[in-house]
Amino acid sequence: MTFNIIIKKAFKDINRNFAPQIITTAIVSLFIFILVFYDVLSLNLTRFVDRFGRELAIVIFLEKDISPTEVPKYYEKMSKIKDIKKVTYISPEEAYKRLEENLKEEKGVLEGLNHNFLPHSFEIEISQAIQNLERIQDIAKEIEGWKGVSKVLYGQEWIQGLSIFAKNARIFVYLVALILLFTAAFVVTNAINSLVYHRREEVEIMRLIGATNFFIISPFIFVAFLQGFVGSLTGVITAFFAFNKLKEFLYTSPLLMDIKLAFLNINEIFSILFISVIFCVSGTYLALRKSLEL
């Protein structure tokens, strides 16, 4: 029963102050649009980096004097390491063949050399390499310490660079998201405060005739909820349409290689809506506590 009255009062408030409420909702939409834009950018950058990261591998060279009978032991030991997806053995002959292919016209420099002059080696692929950049380093260091291993290559600088970039991009997006959400909550809180100011006489009278704090603040909280929800939903929908337009535009771009651009998944969208509503409602509640001296 009281709930009906609260909803009616909230909609009356919106109706009476329609323009300021719409502007506030539009500002929330804009902030959420920017937030989603950064989030989608970060997501696709990660996918872009992941595309290259798939080729990340560790190459292990054994000591020259390791006999072929000992090689399976190393293979087995490597296969047992956690997070290793695939271990490929490269025989000295296979390595020689690859070297020849790489040298192309200059393969003549190999003339006179024994086809077995290269050491036994392995290529290791790591599960979800791009999410496991630190793990690659750890595995490489672990194998480097084994007896009989002469060298371990894993493109340390490239991996570290990727790792730092990926981390910083996420931190940047989280910071931007936090600032935008706080700003959106601040705008909504101010709009509600102005609503309270216009209704201060009514609030005073309602108190004198026995209205509870819940009854007084609920319509304001409901308006803040609507602004947070409608504002963020509009922001997400607008960002989705803008993303699709951009995708159509970039569809044939060679820059994308075979990477498919992705939008936020349903869980991320719900999280943005939920957090936006929580920020707007809690900001408004705190402001009401202060302005109405609850």
Binding site: M1, N4, I5, M206, I209
Partner: peptide, 18 residues
């Protein structure tokens, strides 16, 4: 508010409506 609404508000705060 109209005088009807001015009086109605007393009932609304105690949850009587409609």
């Amino acid at each position: 508010k109209t005088i009807f609404e001015n009086v109605l508000i007393s009932l609304e705060v105690i949850g009587i409506e409609g």
